[in-house]
Amino acid sequence: MADSIMDGVRLLLITAGVAFFIIGSIGLIRFPDVYTRIHALTKADNLGLGLIVIGLLLGAGSLATSAKLVLIWLLTLVASASAGYLVARAARRRGVKPWQAKDTPPAKGDDTPPPQSGGH
C-alpha cells in the first residue's frame, strides 16, 4: 500500500517535470524574441528537471545515487543560467532590440536615450 502511494507520488512528480519541459519548448516557439525565449527555456527547464530529480530521489536506492542526481541538477542549473546569460549578452552586443508589446508605451528602462547634442 505504502509502496503504491510512493509510486503514485513519483509518477506525479516525474510527469509534472516532463510537462514543464514540454511547456518550456512551447515557450521557445511561442515567445517573440531571443530574450523572452531564454526566459522560457531556463526557468521552465530548471523547474522541470528539479521535479524529475525529486521524483527519482524518492526511488533512489543509495545515498551516493541520490547525491549524484542532485549534483546533476546543480550542474545543469549553473550551465543553463550561464548559457542563458551568454546568449542574452551576445544578442545585446549585436544590438538586438527587445520585443515590445504593441499597445504599451515605451518601457521605463528603455536603453536608447535620445541623441544628445553639444559635445565638446
Binding site: 514543464f20 518550456g24 511561442r30 515567445f31 526566459h39 523547474l47 528602462g109
Partner: peptide
Amino acid sequence: SLRAGVDVAARTLKPSLPLQPALL
C-alpha cells in the same frame, strides 16, 4: 524556482501571451 517555472509556464499557455518585456 518554483515561482519562476510556474510563472513562465502560465504565460506560455495563456492564448493572449501576456508579456510586457523591458530592459532595465
